[in-house]
Computed example of a mutant assay.
Amino acid sequence: MDVVAVDLGGTNARFAIARIAEGRVIEVGDMTTLATAHYATFQSAWEDFAARHGGHLPSAAAIAVACPVKGREIKLTNCPWVLSVDALRRDLDRLTLVNDFGAVGHAVRHLDTGHLQHVMGPDRPLPEQGLISIIGPGTGLGVAHLLRRNGHAYVIETEGGHSDFAPLDAIEDHMLGRLRERYLRVSVERLVSGPGLLGIYETLAEIDGAPRLFQDDKSLWAAALDGSDRLAVAALDRFCLIFGSVAGDIALTQGASAVVIAGGVGLRLADRLAHSGFARRFSAKGRFEAMMMELPVKLITHPHVGLIGAAAAFAEEHGL
């Protein structure tokens, strides 16, 4: 059957028509990406997507949302949209709502090795038994895990991206102090996310006594990735260090046998992460350093992983 697959993040809403058969996602159609800032509500974005398809959409939807999926109203964490569960169920014959990184967990079950780029640790496939931590910076920081046990797979959604940031050197101490003045409580998402790079850059500029040439994270990311600004590159290097620390902490606390990196920022770092300080910080866990170095870490390179995951969650919920 066909379903409308939706991946709602803080910055973009992605839509596509997915086809499900025999419990698997066999096809995802062309993706439409709509900027959430251009639409007052989810309904208006949905209607725009419908108009692009001649006004006719399947009466089933699989929606991944970047927030906890609880209650009758769902408020996205990094976007002002609010989804009414009652209204959605009234308008649709079948509906699945899943946390965005819960959706990534479902997608990991379906992805082949060709869409998993090796980052560090032993270069072997993801384990068929055990727990796989799933971590992904985008507009925020998503965290989930996939537990494989005795032929069954269980996806567990979390809000691990909102755990406290723990600095590991004097530069990060300074960073925490600056951010605490702005936010009071500083979560890891304030740094390990697309917007988080700007806070890192501003701290380094303050320490160096250098002018702040970038006022927004979009232009900063461009300069960091193309190497056109020294301080922007230094900020990205520090981002990779902090990301490694956070990813290692999550894997350690979840008891992971492997780690999968997802998210839009992860894709941006596909050619850089393995050659950065990520691996050193990931494994620097004191008495557990040797154990951490034995964890395979992979990066998802599939561009539509959220849509695949939403449709896969739909297939599981409805027994298709």
Rank of each mutant, 00 (worst) to 15 (best):
D229E: 14
F278Y: 00
G199Q: 12
L88T: 13
L197T: 05
N78L: 05
V192W: 00
G255K: 10
W46L: 06
H56D: 14
A251S: 10
L111T: 15
C79G: 13
P195Y: 06
S187R: 13
A310D: 01
I200H: 02
D237M: 09
A279D: 07
M31T: 07
V108A: 01
Y201M: 09
V155M: 05
A103Q: 10
D48E: 14
V233A: 15
H152V: 06
A103P: 04
I300S: 08
A279F: 11
R148G: 02
R230H: 14
V6E: 12
H115W: 09
A270M: 08
D173N: 13
A37F: 02
W46C: 01
A62Y: 04
F282K: 09
G71F: 05
A234I: 06
P80Y: 12
G277M: 03
L269E: 08
G160P: 01
A312V: 06
D164W: 11
A144Y: 07
D112W: 07
Y39I: 00
Y154C: 12
H152P: 05
L126V: 11
A270N: 03
P127K: 14
W221K: 08
L97A: 09
I132N: 08
G263D: 01
F288V: 06
G136H: 02
G23T: 05
S257F: 11
L34W: 08
L307V: 01
V186D: 00
S59Q: 15
P296Y: 04
T96K: 11
K218N: 04
F282V: 02
G130Q: 09
A224S: 01
T139S: 14
E316L: 14
G306K: 11
L273P: 05
E181Y: 07
F239C: 01
R272V: 03
L131T: 12
T301S: 08
N150V: 05
A60M: 10
L184M: 15
G248C: 06
M1A: 14
T203W: 01
P137K: 12
Y183M: 05
R89P: 07
G71A: 11
